[in-house]
Design a protein around this nucleic acid. Structure first.
Lengths: 191, 191, 191, 191
DNA sequence: TATGAATGAGAATTCATTCAT
DNA sequence: GATGAATGAATTCTCATTCAT
């Protein structure tokens, strides 16, 4: 509770911090409302900074979107190394049932800015992630398709929790959610 | 009033037909691109009619959206009556793997116009549909949650097929897709 | 003085007329103030029409500029055919000393929108016009250079009359101006 | 205070030098692109200094413009004293055909910042310079008008060489240019 | 019923300028 | 003296909607 040289509040004119504030605010808006429904002013207001700093730091709204996408890709890349099937599944489940539904790589990955070049990137990232997931299960004729179904389901569940936010799924007990989702994935990804 | 003349230029100035053309075009756009990213001009052009007819027939873009939602609700209402669990599951699966991904009640239901009143309607419709689905399975403590997970997964898979459209899931063999989805739902909805 | 079914004022919702009003207003602004210093709102207000009609009819401010340039080129093209040297000179002189200094092809031709593609066009048009002028005089080693000097001088005089507008040159007696300008051109273009 | 150290990184934090760098960069930009099309950032970058120094040294973009104008006036003032007609004409010709087209008092004088107060100054300077030129020739009824025509022509030729930059006029042989321009002025200013 | 011209609000972006370091 | 972060006003353009024909 001490405020001794508190690093909070005091620092202003901190470019890196401003950038991060914008990035965080943007991600939440893009995930909840989508690209087109989000205005740069919304984002700047949420971040508590001046609108034109978006252009200063990210060149354009589209640039900010791409930066958010980059962060999502980084998150998705966390299960790269040789993890076991169960470990990978655990990560996917964790992503779906995470405490902050507005920070979800799967939902971010499915949001489109309408730019075809970025859409192509998104498609490539998705395929790459699906391949990794497929490699975790037993190889089979439809391994990639199965992995995509898991990702799509994960995205759908995460979206429902972040966009429409109906109950009980939005505030469900993490343990229960975890168990159900593990069952779901187990059923689709061959052991 | 005979039908002899011009089967070539068959119906012009046909209010009902114009309305339906707009409705169909709008649904496809809303499902693929979302509400905010869709312009009324896009819709009118797709339908091949004049833009201002949207306001004439639906009062506003929002009104058109609501009409599309109504159609989705009608579709969702088809599994109302006392169907068996397997029949209901079969319908859900059919909705996900349907041949026209741009005509999907689950995706439409998850699209938002940003209007809170309509969002509340959407939430209500979702809950109502989830209840129906829950009632099909064995009653249990988390029946509604399980049903929502199924719907959310269905929405996610359908969205991936209609929005990002990656392969192989987009052009997957219907039979294979059907089998995998049935497994998925079976795992979540208690028999 | 009769106002019987006056074609003035009454017609509204006349696309062609609106387009022309914008074109005229834009030309005057571009010539007097230049491209960058002119706002689309200035133009629309001068024309007495809504700003967004500029985008409707000319796609963009740049498109409107290009259209103005096109009109200038048309004017410049009027001395195409086999006119005599004196006739061509008379036309150049008329352009400089014309009653409306804000409708001058030479000044318009020298205004830049900053777009390199259009700048290239302008350069080509200028060269082409200079060649025509050069062809009117006696052929010589510096015929094209001489023609360009004449055009540049014409542009300079017209600009001074339309932009800075100092006296006495701005309100000079047309006959006097005519005589002086003819002397000037005569001195540069070899007979 | 010795100059022994660092001839490499010679002057930093030298106010006078920074001022001059900005002045030079600004003049070139204003002459080539005009006031409105030039951004203070362009100027600062060209000068290799920080943008906000423009406000520090010249109070505003407008102040910088005025300073550039002052420099042009100084140049123009060089033919003040009792020079002969031919000497004055030689100076005008030199100004037009000078090696650096982006350093031209006539062009600078014709550029507007849009500020009416400064425009009035420019008009006054022009008149004053025209009077001096008029005084060099034989007095006559249209002496001032003749002088303005010469200045306007000079401006036009200089502008063409600095803005649109078409060939052959831009890279013309100075001697040839000199001869042609002398002929031009001779024809307008009565001997 | 349909068309397309016109409108006005709102969006992203640019840019001169100010402020803190 | 210099830097670069931040601000706010202005600008172009888009888009849903209304109006006249």
């Amino acid at each position: 509770m001490s405020d001794l040289d508190s690093p909070v509040e005091p620092r202003r004119r901190d470019a890196a911090r401003t950038r991060q504030l914008l990035l965080d605010a943007a991600r939440r808006r893009f995930i909840r409302d989508g690209y087109a429904a989000t205005t740069v002013r919304d984002i700047a207001d949420d971040a508590g900074v001046n609108v034109s700093l978006i252009n200063r730091y990210f060149a354009s709204k589209e640039g900010l979107f791409e930066a958010c996408l980059g962060a999502a890709v980084t998150d998705l890349g966390n299960d790269t190394d040789g993890l076991s099937r169960d470990e990978i599944i655990a990560r996917v489940v964790a992503r779906i049932s995470g405490r902050d539904p507005l920070d979800n790589a799967y939902v971010m990955l499915m949001r489109s800015s309408g730019d075809e070049r970025i859409d192509e990137m998104r498609r490539a990232i998705l395929i790459s992630h699906a391949r990794k997931l497929a490699a975790a299960g037993t190889p089979g004729p439809h391994a990639l398709l199965r992995a995509q179904i898991v990702i799509a389901a994960a995205f759908g569940i995460a979206t429902m929790r972040s966009a429409l936010q109906p109950e009980p799924i939005t505030s469900a007990d993490p343990a229960v959610l975890h168990a159900l989702l593990t069952d779901l994935i187990d059923a689709v990804l061959p052991r």
